[in-house]
Nucleic acid binder design. Structure first.
Length: 199
DNA sequence: CTTGCGATTCTA
DNA sequence: AGAATCGCAAGG
């Protein structure tokens, strides 16, 4: 296994979003490693992207994390209830990120999330679930990621991504991004990436 | 200070 | 189809 380094994140957001499919994310909580394999992402490409929180260089308390250099976490609250986990990309002051929308559980997930849902590992995330609320909220919940992790480094020992070099390359599909009806011409762009068969 | 609503999930 | 639920960001 090889940990992803700053060089991986500090590249074009669309490339990072695509290459994150099939990578693994680890969050170490209370001596336990929560691990998932990423199966679905969306790219938010910065000041030009009408769907991006930093569109038109909107720099506020919330979007500050997007302006950090690639390799940090951007976690925000959506609909007053759910946390969304993003990987910040590109250089400092280039406010781009990749939203992690779906994953495949690999190792035991957050005990609290299990209690809450009273379900199996598979059902804790949106992996291979259709016709149901699928999306980034579940992924963050399963990995115990909240706004406390906002601005955290993804190069640390407790919170990082890695790849298995022996893994076969995933088969990747694309589509428009989900729930961004307000984004006008940008809502058509195929900036959602997923492993074929995972959604 | 007010207000409309969102990169969603879950129940019915 | 509708509710839950609250911080953000824009506007007055």
């Amino acid at each position: 296994m090889k940990k992803l380094t700053a060089d991986f994140y500090k590249r074009d957001t669309l490339i990072v979003a695509k290459e994150l499919i099939g990578k693994y994310i680890v969050h170490r909580v209370k001596e336990k490693n929560l691990v998932c394999r990423i199966t679905e992402t969306e790219a938010y490409t910065g000041v030009e992207d009408k769907a991006c929180h930093a569109y038109q260089n909107r720099r506020t308390n919330r979007t500050e994390a997007l302006y950090m250099e690639g390799g940090h976490a951007y976690v925000f609250l959506i609909y007053g209830m759910y946390d969304c986990m993003n990987v910040v990309t590109e250089e400092k002051n280039t406010p781009c990120a990749v939203l992690l929308r779906g994953c495949q559980p690999i190792s035991p997930l957050d005990a609290l999330a299990q209690q809450r849902y009273q379900k199996t590992y598979q059902q804790l995330t949106n992996y291979q679930k259709k016709n149901f609320g699928n999306g980034p909220g579940k992924l963050a919940k399963a990995l115990a990621i909240t706004r406390e992790q906002n601005k955290a480094s993804l190069l640390s020992e407790e919170f990082f991504l890695f790849e298995k070099e022996e893994d076969l390359p995933p088969v990747i599909g694309t589509s428009p991004r989900i729930n961004i009806d307000y984004a006008e011409e940008y809502k058509e762009k195929h900036w959602r990436f997923f492993e074929v068969g995972s959604v």
